[in-house]
């Protein structure tokens, strides 16, 4: 039982990371990942959507006829996103204005309908909840990684405008990684996102192959059966 949960967690964060492995939801990933705060904001909004939608889809999975399941899933997701959009409008107005159209567009994020169809509609509610949470956190992890890379290269700072998310106390959180940096526009513009994501995927593949080399699989040791004389 426990191993099943840990597999869901590992899949979500690393092995089947929706951004690095499945390459789903790239539109918001590439569009808003120009600073850490934007990335974190959209990542957490997506995570909240995933958790709610996966849980609800799993709860109603037995009563939804399979012929109409996709429209039902889409309606569920749209409801959840609308609620999150209203909540962000109320409590994170600055961030809401910056992320703009990409909050309602979470509805079209393939990750969410993908997890609903491939996982939540076939699994028990606790697993669907866990899957939604960790798939979302994996997506947030990818977004924040890409966002910090682009923010450092693009404008030489980290955590700029953190007050949009963490309140006025966070105004002093901005770290100037490189002093007197005139900025590199390409990293902030969309091509920088594509190039950055390519490098991150390459890095993940290198790490995976390194790990594989270091850990020779036990089951590959040949076993010889010696026939009795």
């Amino acid at each position: 039982m426990f191993s099943e949960y840990s597999k869901i967690i590992k899949d979500g964060l690393w092995r089947n990371n929706q951004a690095f492995v499945a390459l789903l939801g790239l539109c918001p990933l590439l569009a808003v990942s120009n600073t850490v705060v934007n990335s974190l904001g959209l990542g957490l909004a997506t995570t909240a959507t995933l958790v709610c939608s996966s849980t609800i889809v799993s709860l109603i999975r037995t009563i939804v006829p399979s012929e109409v399941r996709l429209p039902v899933f889409v309606l569920v997701i749209a409801c959840v996103v609308t609620m999150i959009e209203l909540a962000m409008n109320a409590w994170f107005y600055g961030l809401y204005k910056i992320l703009g159209i990409f909050i309602p567009l979470i509805v079209t994020n393939c990750t969410i309908i993908g997890r609903a169809e491939a996982f939540a509609s076939k699994q028990s509610t606790d697993k669907a909840f866990l899957d939604g949470l960790f798939m979302g956190l994996g997506f947030t992890f990818a977004l924040v990684l890409l966002g910090s890379m682009r923010e450092i290269i693009g404008s030489g700072t980290l955590l700029a405008k953190a007050e949009l998310m963490f309140g006025p106390a966070a105004q002093s959180w901005q770290i100037n990684v490189i002093d007197d940096y005139s900025g590199m526009l390409l990293a902030i513009l969309p091509p920088g996102a594509f190039i950055g994501l390519g490098f991150l995927i390459a890095l993940k593949n290198v790490l995976d192959s390194k790990v594989k080399q270091r850990k020779p699989a036990i089951e590959q040791i040949p076993v010889q059966v010696v026939p009795e004389q």
Partner: peptide
């Protein structure tokens, strides 16, 4: 083009 887009000045 990378340079022109990134460092216009």
């Amino acid at each position: 083009v990378l340079l022109l887009v990134s460092f216009p000045l």
